[in-house]
Design a binder for these strands. Structure first.
Length: 274
DNA sequence: CACGAGACCTGTTCGC
DNA sequence: TGCGAACAGGTCTCGT
């Protein structure tokens, strides 16, 4: 499900609390349970409970699509993958069918990872860099400049869309925001990375940041039954708009497959590379 | 190195 | 109505 803007929205929601639930930061973990073993990447479920209980949640951060809960001693890393969601609920509520792991807090609330497809993963470690270390730059960081992007693009010989979705190239983009950014930048998803001019790179850089910022401002995108509260789905330019008019030129949006992912683009605004 | 296919999973939607 | 196929916001591993 979630890409950078959705994870950022969940982070904000959890750290400040919402209308119906208290903030997570400052609470202490009183109990933990793993309901689907493979959800836990490390350590073993038994170790996990023993190790996590008693630790306080100091801060919540985001790196790429990872949520990082900084605890008293360790770091809890959460990746929601395709269908994961985090929910705060009273600890007396019955365990929902798709809950895979939960933490009980010392205030009567429970943080649950709900994940129908079971792809989500959780790590408890005192060395978060072993998991996060391979990630590429944060697209919204000051350090991520058009020149930095140009250098990275030129160093590779790859199709633009799969490269942008490669988390070691750039952290946080997924299928939606990549399609949206490429459309805004007027670049075809199959363009080869080292064929971009500096000017095209600047346009791509600005588009990536604009689309991600818009996504965050709208609290992410809510599609289907997974993750609620976002509004960005109402502003998609091309994603899931096959056959509809391009917002720029009116040409029907086309859908194709690139790197085994559904890909949406405007054949007029985003001409195929030669 | 670059790329495609298959795996991991369940649920929804589409076409016949 | 029923049923199988296709598809879904992600990532890993393997083979070419």
């Amino acid at each position: 499900m979630p890409e950078l803007p959705e994870v950022e929205s969940i982070k904000n929601l959890l750290s400040t609390g919402g209308p119906d639930w208290p903030p997570l930061v400052g609470k202490t973990i009183a109990a933990a349970q793993v309901l689907w073993q493979r959800t836990l990447a490390t350590p073993t479920p038994k170790q996990f409970s023993r190790q996590v209980v008693g630790q306080a949640i100091k801060t919540i951060e985001r790196r790429g699509k990872f949520l990082t809960l900084v605890l008293s001693r360790d770091t809890l890393l959460i990746h929601l993958r395709m269908s994961g969601d985090l929910q705060m609920e009273p600890k007396m509520r019955p365990i929902a069918p798709h809950h895979r792991l939960f933490l009980e807090l010392d205030n009567g609330w429970r943080l649950a990872l709900n994940d129908p497809r079971k792809f989500g993963r959780v790590w408890l470690t005192d060395q978060p860099n072993t998991v996060l270390g391979k990630l590429g730059p944060e697209p919204l960081d000051d350090a991520f400049t058009p020149e930095a992007l140009y250098q990275r693009l030129q160093a590779r010989h790859r199709q633009l869309k799969p490269l942008l979705m490669d988390q070691s190239f750039l952290a946080g983009l997924g299928n939606i925001y990549t399609d949206e950014a490429l459309h805004l930048a007027c670049l075809h998803p199959l363009t080869l990375s080292n064929q971009l001019t500096l000017e095209q790179t600047e346009r791509l850089w600005a588009s990536l940041r604009a689309i991600l910022q818009e996504g965050i401002r709208l609290n992410g995108a809510s599609i289907d039954w997974v993750y609620r509260g976002g509004e960005f789905q109402n502003y998609f330019r091309v994603y899931q708009r096959t056959g509809e008019a391009c917002p720029t030129c009116g040409t029907p949006i086309q859908r194709t497959t690139v790197g085994q992912r559904g890909t949406h683009f405007c054949p007029t605004c985003q001409p195929a590379p030669t």
